[in-house]
Design a protein around this nucleic acid. Structure first.
Lengths: 93, 93
DNA sequence: CGGGATCCGCGTGGATACTG
DNA sequence: CAGTATCCACGCGGATCCCG
């Protein structure tokens, strides 16, 4: 459970499960997350070995975040949570 | 996700998925949870319609907590989280 | 037995402003 | 673009003491 700590963490992992993604893309994917929190979550995920951070030497600079193999193992659990969430949403209309 | 909020919440739901359970039994099931926190989680779960609280008119008094139908829908998600946790534990231990 | 009352610390998150 | 800095608020959790 500690892996999923943080309200936005499952969301971030879920979007990364679709492939590598840049900081700004994630901000766009999850509109209501603040840069500060996204940054904090990504750092934490990197520390735990769930994502890897790759700096591309371009101009303007871009940074890519990728799920590790371990990170991918968390995806099914997150999906089953999301599935319940969807069910609820549909039920409420 | 808000349904699973609280570090102990998934644990509580998981133990309740095995059938109705009393306050003291849950404390015994989850040794490191404090009475205050268990009480808070159960109240929250009751408020969300995940568990029902039934007071038995016995002496000494006993209170039974039961998962609602809706509560049962959360169990698969919790199980899939637990499964990942087990996998990790085995890998380290 | 099944809690409630109180106190206190920490992590998380939001908003805003700023930077290499 | 991809963050960092600062400030503030709230929820969660631990510990202890108390109650019907």
């Amino acid at each position: 459970m500690s892996m999923l700590r943080g309200a936005w963490t499952p969301n971030v992992i879920w979007y990364l499960s679709g492939g590598p993604r840049r900081f700004g893309e994630l901000r766009h994917d999850i509109p209501r997350i603040s840069a500060r929190v996204l940054s904090a979550r990504l750092k934490e995920l990197e520390r735990r070995g769930i994502v890897t951070r790759t700096v591309m030497a371009t101009s303007p600079p871009s940074v890519e975040y990728t799920l590790t193999g371990f990170g991918h193992e968390l995806v099914p659990a997150i999906n089953s949570i999301a599935r319940v969430g969807m069910k609820l949403k549909n039920r409420l209309g």
